[in-house]
Design a binder for these strands. Structure first.
Length: 200
DNA sequence: GGTGTGATCGTA
DNA sequence: ACGATCACACCA
């Protein structure tokens, strides 16, 4: 079974093409202080730059979203709702500010550290079943914004588990209701206990 | 199991 | 003002 870090060219595409291929890939954080954390991605959303009213990049570059305007294959981590961090993988093509929001994952390694950070979690499925929870479990914050996921301590690994042939495709959470967004840019694993909100 | 609501603060 | 959210209260 292969175990390779995804190369930059994997990310250098439209986020809508990258997102479904990220399902079943493994997010790894070799936390210098807490050891290895790993979880299998089961839910992601594509955000498509300047043309996408739901994207932070829609209104152009600011200090906050600068990472999205850089090279593909880096993290974009932002703070929201006054209390949560969310993490994205910057895509392309080239420097077009596309990104994939990491919404949920099934924990694989470092569960003790994840439970320590996610004090409210009662069972494994509570650790990474939402973008804010996932970032908290992995210890992501502003220090991780902009880091290179093709060579750094955070990376995405293909361990040989193929993406689903029939991912569940649905509307993005948090946008559809308020802004009448009909785009189907959310991709998740059917039946996974770690998916955040039941898809509609 | 489900729904509704308040928390909390950086950003524009 | 408002948000790419979460946890808890409450009802079933």
């Amino acid at each position: 079974m292969s175990r390779r870090t995804l190369p930059r060219r994997f990310y250098d595409r439209d986020a809508r093409d990258v997102a479904p291929e990220l399902l079943h890939k493994v997010l790894v954080h070799d936390d210098p202080e807490h050891g290895r954390l790993a979880a299998r991605l089961v839910e992601v959303e594509a955000y498509c730059g300047r043309d996408d009213p739901g994207s932070h990049a829609f209104r152009g570059e600011t200090p906050r979203n600068a990472s999205m305007f850089g090279r593909p294959g880096h993290l974009y981590v932002y703070f929201t709702y006054g209390m949560h961090w969310c993490s994205n993988l910057v895509c392309g093509p080239d420097t077009r500010p596309h990104a994939v929001l990491l919404r949920a994952a099934e924990p694989l390694d470092g569960l003790d550290t994840m439970y320590a950070r996610r004090v409210k979690a009662r069972r494994d499925r509570d650790l990474c079943s939402g973008p804010g929870k996932l970032a908290q479990a992995f210890g992501f914050d502003r220090r991780h914004d902009g880091i290179d996921v093709t060579r750094g301590i955070v990376r995405i690994v293909d361990d040989g588990v193929a993406p689903p042939a029939d991912p569940l495709v649905s509307r993005r959470i948090g946008l559809a209701a308020g802004r009448g967004d009909d785009s189907l840019w959310r991709f998740s694993i059917r039946g996974s206990a770690s998916v955040s909100v039941p898809p509609r």
